[in-house]
Every structure is written in C-alpha cells, then in structure tokens.
Design a protein around this nucleic acid. Structure first.
Ligand SMILES: [Mn+2]
Ligand SMILES: [Mn+2]
Ligand SMILES: [Zn+2]
Ligand SMILES: [Zn+2]
Lengths: 137, 137
DNA sequence: CCCTACATTGGACAAGGTCTAAGTCAAGGC
DNA sequence: GCCTTGACTTAGACCTTGTCCAATGTAGGG
C-alpha cells in the first residue's frame, strides 16, 4: 500500500477501489493533471468510475493537504501530488508541460513592508514561463 | 479622451460607445476585474452593451498589449489595465482583493541553469498570498 | 449624406465544475 | 462469516465561464 493510502486510512477514509485508482494515477514526479485527465487515466483501470467521484476525491485530497491545486493557464485546474516539498513551476507556453523547479533565495522576503499594504503575507507562488526543448524549433 | 482611447484611435480602431465604456470601466489603479464584472459596470453606463462585445473588446485589448490576463484564483480570468509597467500581485485569500506590488530583485535569475530542463525561460510571475487588513480579525 | 467594412447583438453552444437523489458497499459488531 | 449502517458512488441536471455565428447596426471616409 502506498504511503498516501496509508495516511488516508489513518484519517478514517474508507479505502474504495475508486480512491485507490485516483491515488495510483497521481503518483510520480512532475505530475500536474487536470481533473478530466485523472478521470481518463482512472477509467483505464476502473471503467465505471464517475467524473463526480474524481472531483470529490481530488477535492478531499486538497483539503487534507495531500494535493495542491495549480492554475497556471486560463483553463482547467491542475492537481499536483508533490505537496510535501515546497516548489515552484516552469511552464511551456506552447504545449503546457509543467516541471517542478526549486529557485534559489526567498521570494517572500523580496516583498518590502512598504509593498504589503497591511496584508499578512503567508506565501508566494512563482511561475516561470518559456518554451520547452520539444517545442523549440 | 484618455490615453488609451487615443492609442486605439491611432491603431485604426473605430471608437464606438461600447469600447469607450469598457475603457472607462477599466481605468484606475489596482483594477483586476473579471469579464462579467466589466460587463456589469459597463451596463450601468450603457444598458444595451452585450456580453459578447465585452469579451471581444477585452480580447482585442489583450492582443494589443493594453491589458493583461491574470489567473490568480481558480475561477474567472481577471483583466489588468496596468500593462505598461511590469509588476506582480498580492492576493487576499479570503475576499480575493488583488493589489499590484513591486518586489525587489530579479526572480528570473533565481532559477539556476540546472533547474531549467532545457527550457528557454522568458518570464516569471509572482503571486503573493495572504490576508488583507479588512479581512483580518 | 451615403456607403460599406467593421462592430454589435442575442442566443446557441462547449468546457469545466458543482450538486443531488437514489443506489451501493466498506468495515465494524456480532 | 453475515448484518447493518453510514459513508461512498453514480448519472445526469445544472451552473459559470467563455466562444461562435448569422443577422443587424453604425463610424467615418469620400
Ligand atoms: Mn508541482
Ligand atoms: Mn495588476
Ligand atoms: Zn512545450
Ligand atoms: Zn480580504
């Protein structure tokens, strides 16, 4: 059993076939799938899984902090299983491929007090944009 | 006539009442409206303006580089008239209010070659998250 | 003032996402 | 092992955001 499923079990989740398959589909590095992509891949292993269950499960995993929502483009939200290690994203403007990246320095401290407008600032997201090697001429 | 309308005139735009109203609604600092918000405000001044025209005009202004699209949350795209001066964003997680901010340093150079995966990197967006003074207890 | 290419309109359509009522099943208790 | 029950899943209606189109209107040059 994967670490993720184990943690879910400990939190009182019923381990259904549907939840197992969603967790399996999300395993790996640099994975940033849309809900419909998760559904398509889950359907290959469990043909009767519904869209609603995929959305429910993704939402629950986000609430538990096991998944991050990423909205780099202006289209569908993507789901990121690399929630345990802080990171940022590098996005190809042509094909949409996303890689996890770890810039140096601390972007939070780059925002001076005078630019905070009284907000309590808790986090920062960086999205680098460019063209990936496959899409380069 | 505003600078924006003047520039549009110079680029061959017909100055219709609809385009004028959309341009007026977008004037100001820290403005980041959704298309439907633009439509609602435009309707107050020109009741017969259609949703399609608002979308058309916003799209054209984006193509001309007069407006930026911002997708900080996972909902509707927001339109940012502050396209002439590079900046980043500070977002309230409770009410969604967005402010323009200017962090120090160069986030682009914070991404080492070893973290670029062969991409040609052309830009970076920073989104700071927090709680605004109005939403703080 | 006319003409016409450009602009606007309402409504159909599509994609992404949410919600609900009815049926199903994981797993604890016996 | 079986029962029971509340949690889970399902299909499909519905909502929001955004695109597209054919018909209609009009800005602005001549
Ligand atoms: Mn990631
Ligand atoms: Mn802005
Ligand atoms: Zn690419
Ligand atoms: Zn707020």
């Amino acid at each position: 059993m994967s670490d993720l499923l184990k943690r879910l079990r400990e939190r009182g989740w019923r381990l259904t076939a549907q939840r197992r398959v969603v967790a399996e589909v999300l395993a790996g590095d640099h994975i940033h799938l849309t809900a419909d992509e998760v559904h398509a891949r889950a359907t290959e292993r469990l043909p009767e899984i519904s869209r609603a269950t995929v959305y429910n499960t993704l939402g629950e995993l986000v609430s538990l902090g096991e998944l991050l929502e990423v909205s780099t483009d202006h289209r569908a939200t993507r789901y990121d299983p690399n929630a345990r290690r802080p990171h940022h994203h590098l996005l190809c403007d042509r094909c949409g491929t996303i890689r996890d990246v770890h810039p140096t320095g601390d972007a939070l401290s780059a925002l001076p007090e005078s630019e905070r407008f009284g907000y309590t600032v808790s986090g920062v997201e960086l999205t680098y944009r460019g063209i990936c090697p496959d899409c380069a001429v």
